[in-house]
Write a protein that binds this DNA or RNA. Structure first.
Lengths: 390, 390
DNA sequence: CTGTTAGCGCCTTCAT
DNA sequence: ATGAAGGCGCTAACAG
């Protein structure tokens, strides 16, 4: 309910320049630092060479360290490098063939917890392999997605990892396939991460997690505890993610010889507010279920609120499970039983596959990885009460 | 309590190569796509020129579009470009002076919600200005921080934005200052984001938010409601962030002519678990306060759990406020009154300052921006009960 | 309108 | 052990 009223307290303050003028700063910050205050262009190899009174080749060799150089010359060069604060120009180096291929990461929005986790994994594994990591966001806009992907390709990314490119739009899929092909032709590679492969013909590596299996496991858990009427809270269609979870739900029911009851599918979105509203409406006439399987932890959070408002205790009256093992899962009271998704590892794996670092790797052609999920048992489930509440 | 037991459900599956061999795929993905299946090097301008039977300069001009070219030739060139799937080499272009300077982003961990928000802001503003965005994580390791910063500098970043470089270590600060100077000398710039300037002599731009003011505002709010004994839940020292919030708390008290009572400072960390434990212990002998100011929303979440376990209702018995306006603030029941921090805008501003895009900008030297915070009123506060509970 | 030429900064043979 | 020279792919003068 209460959409937060907002009270402005302090306002934006484009601050004045620092109060006191920078003091002369008695000791130089770094002994060897010269006073190069002018905003100038970076030092070049040639300048270093001149300063050290050697040829450019020698400087290069000293820096590369893969060739014998007289100790005395080396010292001189090194000092000049220090003195001039020389740093090699990456572009020139790349041009010469010594490129450090970049790993490009394209994602909808970093504020999404799952996305952020994958991104963290990607970045870690990328730098672990000496690659730097370029990032671009799309806000879920398919057109922007293509633009960004192309930009990444142009930037010479050695691999492009796409998170959440699961748009159903067939046109977009074709474009994506074209980009993937183009990338492949340039010796790079497209990796789809965290979403099932959209098209079997797309020349892309796919890294996904056992979405359906996780749903199956957590619903089975409820069934084993004795629950027979389990609400599915979330969209039955639309996102492939939700569809997969529904599939797992249904398979679990089938394994227990229980019929699938469409009236136990509530629908709605993946978010908290929607879940809360939908469930609250569903609860007006009392509850005809003993457990709720929410498609996401956020939805579960909403469900918890709705249940509580309806006077139902969790897990005493109704059991509740979520999906994703988000931070909020442990913030809830009771702490939420949920399905853990190895997002960070997903990102790591994506990079490994993209770089061809997988042991026992298959052909250089398309590959695929499926990471396991597992149930995290917390406090939101219990056997169903003797008598149905409500 | 219940540290989640973990049940492994499905395991890691290095999947076999795709089942059916790629079908001939009746229609080519893209009409103009030629079959370049070999993982080769990207097409060069020269190849395009040869294919179109023109000089390299002409191709360049067609692509740049800033020079008249005969329509017929233009067509030929364009087709060749399509045909060969040509993409300009960024490095070569950069070398020639047409560099699109990169914005580098250095941060401890993307999984942190606040960090992710800042990062999102940085990325948005960077691409909005035609810059690509390089990212590197440090895990809070100061040495790694320096390494990453230097790497960014070497990568030719046009600006480097550092999130959370608030380590107290003076040695690190000096190193940082040196890097900042080096960056400045190369025509780039270091922007410290979301943390107060560590050293007044550091040649860096600083973007921060009104940390102390937010604390002052939210505590004032409690005081206005009639609360007189307000618990400060969080570290009193150590992090500058917490220190600033404590300062705001104290100033609010002072403005109400109330003494600062050290026994109302609970201590602990910024996280949820610690807050919960500390507060629970504090509550054994009953509560001697009517409100709690938690330094972070996570801490507030922990506090809520502890209060509930102690049989105290929020806000009926005890009011609770947090800081940061995290996602979880609305997930809690009751929804948490907290201080909103404009993290995304912080990131945006950092980029704008870094790129010198601020209107009415000051000298090119150090600048500083202070963004306002504001209280978000939700449901976790109320006037204190008549009689002190407990 | 188009082609030729000369580098951007670096690395790497090839000569000394 | 060091220097000179050529070229990575591209663009911007300068000719035609």
């Amino acid at each position: 309910m209460s959409i937060a009223p907002v009270r402005s307290v302090s306002s934006v303050t484009p601050a004045p320049p620092r109060g006191r003028p920078r003091p002369p700063s008695g000791n130089a910050v770094t002994p060897t630092r010269t006073t190069r205050t002018t905003t100038s262009k970076p030092t070049t190899l040639r300048q270093v060479a001149r300063a050290a009174d050697v040829s450019m080749a020698t400087v290069s060799r000293v820096l590369a360290g893969n060739y014998p150089v007289a100790p005395r010359t080396r010292q001189r060069v090194l000092r000049a490098v220090q003195e001039l604060d020389y740093v090699a120009n990456t572009h020139a180096r790349a041009l010469r063939g010594h490129a450090t291929p970049t790993v490009a990461l394209v994602l909808p929005d970093l504020r999404d917890e799952a996305v952020a986790r994958i991104a963290q994994g990607v970045e870690e594994e990328a730098t672990r392999n000496g690659r730097s990591c370029l990032i671009g966001t799309t806000r879920g806009d398919t057109e922007r997605e293509r633009t960004v992907l192309r930009a990444m390709r142009q930037n010479g990314a050695g691999a492009v990892i796409l998170i959440g490119g699961g748009a159903q739009d067939p046109v977009h899929q074709e474009e994506l396939a074209a980009i993937a092909a183009s990338l492949a032709a340039a010796g790079s590679r497209l990796v789809l991460c965290g979403r099932p492969a959209p098209d079997d013909a797309m020349p892309a590596t796919v890294v996904e997690y056992d979405n359906e299996g996780g749903a199956y496991a957590v619903v089975s858990r409820l069934l084993v505890q004795g629950h027979r009427r389990i609400l599915f809270l979330g969209p039955a269609t639309g996102s492939t993610t939700a569809a997969g979870r529904l599939a797992g739900y249904r398979r679990a029911l089938a394994d227990f010889d229980l019929p699938f009851r469409p009236e136990l599918v509530v629908g709605g979105g993946l978010g908290r507010a929607d879940a809360r509203d939908r469930l609250a409406r569903r609860l007006v006439g009392g509850s005809d279920f003993t457990a709720v399987f929410a498609v996401t932890d956020n939805a579960a959070s909403g469900a918890l609120a709705a249940l509580r408002e309806a006077g139902l205790r969790v897990p005493d009256d109704v059991s509740l499970v979520g999906y994703g093992d988000a931070e909020c899962a442990t913030d809830l009271l009771p702490q939420l039983t949920t399905v853990h998704v190895p997002y960070v590892e997903l990102g790591r794996t994506a990079v490994r596959l993209a770089l061809g670092l997988t042991e026992g790797s298959v052909s250089a052609a398309d590959q695929r990885a499926l990471l396991g999920t597992h149930v995290v048992l917390r406090d939101s489930t219990a056997p169903p009460p003797r008598r149905r509440p409500g």
